[in-house]
Amino acid sequence: MSEYKVLPGPEAYLPPSAASMGITLPDPGEALIEGRIVPEDEAIEYAARKLLSAKVPTIFPGPQVLWKWDEMAPKIAKALRELAVILPARLIPMADYRPKYPKIDPAVEINPNHPNLTIWHNKIDVCMFVGVHCHLSGMGLKMIRGGTDCYTIAMCLMAGHEDACISVRDTTDEKIRKLIDAVKKLKAQGVKSQALPFTQFKHDYKSVKE
């Protein structure tokens, strides 16, 4: 197994891709923490801990969960909303993958073609990708590790991402719910969210919490 560690950046001007450093993707039931293959539950618990410890935890839902195109998408969307509320965390969508013209507002949306803006001038310290097509997510994760010190989590609908600090594969709404349960459990144990207060669009987490 590779000794390489997938840690938050900024690692290099153009950091190597984890796959080329020998990190392999997990098999079903497994997940990755910083390049190590671990049981999936362990990774989910660790992700919950990371999200709670963040000052600006942010969830990036991608097209596969934003758009109601198959049976799974609305289920995951619902779970993500609950997760965002319970953590709390911002939800910043990756609505599509176009190089947007003339500008993109990184507080409103993200896009892998605009890497300098991808994580909001490094204001986001922990982010989570869900439902972004793997090729684009692979790009986004690499650029984040190249340019910022953001801790990345990828809840992948398919085979996972070595370039994320934590990666879970075959994500369903149930796995997001496992993450919610892990957050709840940690909170019950007295772990407090370190998130700075924020207001997002029409939705203020404080008001929704009730």
Binding site: L14, T24, L25, P102, N113, H114, G138, M143, G146
Partner: peptide, 23 residues
């Protein structure tokens, strides 16, 4: 409005995909 880094990481991702085929 588009970064050079997008093309570089695009290429890395292609090559990463090639490496992933090993398994």
């Amino acid at each position: 409005y588009i970064s050079y880094a997008a093309h570089a990481t695009w290429q890395q991702e292609m090559r990463a995909a090639c490496d992933r085929s090993r398994k």
